[in-house]
Design a protein around this nucleic acid. Structure first.
Length: 563
RNA sequence: GCGCCCGUAGCUCAGUGGAUAGAGCGGAUGGCUUCGGACCAUCAGGCCGGGGGUUCGAAUCCCUCCGGGCGCGCCA
């Protein structure tokens, strides 16, 4: 696949940069004095349309180092843009205005937009993908819920955020591996086994055992042969039954994620990290560096040497390993696979473990900046104004499957994609399941369906989108307005990938849908008496369809052809 | 007490150095002989938690206070 065309913003940025250089070469602007960092050329979409399609504050940024007034610099930049040929009928810019206190406001030329839209249509499903300035091989680990019970609504946000982030990074040109980590060796599994045994024998479930209805079901499904074997060995009874149950639970978790449209490339178990020697190798490595010591019979990592509050136990005094032991083995294992960036999507309650993990990575010689933890803030699931509590152990919770059955994957995806992961949010179940266009996700999906309907209408009259939009936008503000929204997707993706956030994409999707509806209001697309106009407008519809479909695909949300 | 995150319209949330702070919902008003009215348009609604500072320019950066969440274990 050829490299995608760079976002329009990047193309214009190069023009501005070239104009700046020309202004310097022509003597219109002095050169920056040695040792002064050149300011970046920033381009923004002004909110006020009178300020053009793209605006740069470069003159304002240059005023101080050049000791010139911003307006004078802006004037020189505009003149240089003209001299460069960037402002011309065939150039990308049709006009450059300067405005106080020193902005240069640029307007995109219709011919440039027409060419870009033709490119959008031929890119089709690849539209919106961009090339990364620094391509990375990224490992992103998320969900990683222990196999002690079904996924709950509490796991929903992490699942969607991890999936959405993966999609966005991929579209942004990164190579992404999605990974799920099962803690399958610790005492929670034993507790799960003990809970099953209690259910099976009608005893009281241990206080810190698992009380959910699913435990009763698992106890009933437990094969007699497993039961008999576990009873024979006695001491290992709970562990054996727990292991069986964890295996069953894991299958359910995988099925739930599948239903969400969340897929993983690698499923890793804690057990394998020990068995394959990764934990031991990591500890050896730390020991070689003098980063571990023994005290009170336990093995400690000297985390305080890297700024942590206290040192951290790797092996307890009873010889058992902590989760942290597996964590450091896992870091080693991940880096051994060639990743140069590790992302962990964790619940906010894990924030206390961030420092030790990054510290250990640094101690083992890795770049701590390559190890990033995303802490996902809590979600309050609200129904009729009441908070729905969730606790896997108490057994009072809504499963992820139940949430999905009620509100649907599309609506749930949108809900999480449109909110920053650092912010605690209220998830109103009644609002999310609203099937009408009052729900933004359906408003956008409807726009796509509407376009498809119009295309079908044209098809029925023998009118098909023309091959090129050349010469059809100039003088049509309605078409230009829609076109400018359609072509923005690549830069929206670029920003989202750089920030590791998805809110910008849902915001863009809404704006694009609004632009489509506005165009629909102002222009009749299909008119049997005006075939030439119709085919041109159908071509614009086709470009809008591509952009809407690509945006929704990026979010993992369906784009129906009819609703 | 210490650390991290958060505080923006009635509600749910965007915006993290630029021009008059935005969207959706909710509220008010208006628009269908017309390609899908699941739509569109207009209006009302903000000392951006308070105060101080940095800057030509602050919701955004720094300090401080207030309020909320989460953490501070040889638990996970």
């Amino acid at each position: 696949m050829p490299d995608p065309e760079p976002p329009i913003r990047s193309q214009i940025r190069e023009r501005v940069r070239a104009a700046w250089q020309r202004a310097e070469a022509d003597g219109a602007l002095p050169a920056l004095s040695a040792g002064t960092d050149a300011p970046a050329v920033e381009l923004a979409h002004p909110q006020n349309t009178e300020h053009g399609d793209l605006a740069t504050n470069l003159a304002l940024r240059l005023a101080r180092p050049l000791r010139l007034s911003p307006m004078r610099i802006a004037e020189a930049l505009a003149t240089a843009l003209r001299a460069e040929g960037s402002i011309a009928e065939s150039g990308p810019i049709s006009a450059a205005d300067i405005a106080a206190p020193g902005f240069v406001n640029l307007r995109l030329s219709p011919a440039f937009l027409e060419r870009t839209l033709d490119g959008v249509r031929s890119a089709d499903q690849a539209f919106g993908r961009v090339t990364a300035a620094q391509p990375r091989n990224v490992n992103i680990e998320f969900v990683s819920a222990n196999p002690t019970g079904p996924l709950t609504v509490g796991n929903a946000r992490g699942a969607f955020v991890g999936d959405l982030l993966s999609r966005v990074l991929e579209a942004g040109g990164q190579q992404v591996t999605r990974e799920y980590y099962f803690n399958d060796t610790n005492r929670q599994i034993v507790m799960l086994g003990a809970s099953l045994v209690a259910r099976r024998t009608n005893q009281a479930i241990p206080e810190d055992g698992y009380h959910g209805e699913y435990v009763r079901e698992l106890a009933q499904e437990l094969p007699d042969e497993i039961w008999s074997r576990a009873m024979e060995v006695g001491a290992e009874r709970d562990a054996i039954i727990g292991a069986w149950a964890a295996h069953r639970v894991r299958s359910g978790i995988e099925a739930s994620l599948e239903a969400l449209g969340v897929r993983f490339d690698v499923w890793k178990t804690e057990d394998s990290l020990h068995a394959e020697g990764w934990v031991q190798r990591a500890i050896d490595r730390l020991r070689d560096g003098g980063h571990v010591y023994e005290q009170d019979g336990a093995l400690w990592f000297r985390s305080t040497a890297f700024g942590d509050d206290k040192d951290r136990v790797i092996y307890r005094s009873d010889g058992t390993s902590t989760y942290f032991a597996a964590d450091i083995g896992y870091v080693t294992e991940k880096f051994s696979r060639g990743f140069d960036r590790l992302i962990y999507v964790w619940g906010a309650d894990h924030h206390g473990t961030v420092a030790r993990n990054r510290n250990a990575a640094e101690a083992m010689g890795y770049d701590r900046e390559a190890v990033q933890m995303l802490l996902i803030a809590w979600v309050h699931f609200i129904r009729d104004g009441a908070d729905i509590s969730m606790s896997k152990r108490s057994g009072e919770f809504i499963t992820l499957d139940e949430l999905l059955a009620e509100v649907g994957a599309d609506a749930a995806r949108w809900y999480f994609a449109s909110r920053a992961h650092t912010t605690g949010i209220d998830f109103d179940i009644e609002a999310a399941k609203d099937p009408t266009a009052a729900n933004p996700v359906h408003y956008v999906r409807y726009a796509h369906a509407r376009i498809c309907s119009i295309l079908r209408k044209g098809e029925g009259l023998g009118l098909r989108p023309s091959g090129s939009l050349a010469g059809t936008l100039a003088g049509d503000p309605a078409a230009l307005g829609l076109a400018k929204q359609v072509v923005r997707l690549p830069e929206v993706v670029e920003d989202a990938a750089a920030a590791g956030e998805t809110q910008g994409i849902t915001a863009y999707a809404t704006e694009l849908a609004t632009a489509l509806h506005a165009y629909y209001r102002d222009r009749r697309v299909v008119d049997a008496d005006e075939p030439e106009t119709s085919t041109a407008r159908l071509a614009l519809m086709d470009a809008a369809r591509v952009s809407l479909a690509a945006t929704l695909a990026l979010l993992g949300i369906s784009a129906p052809e009819s609703m």
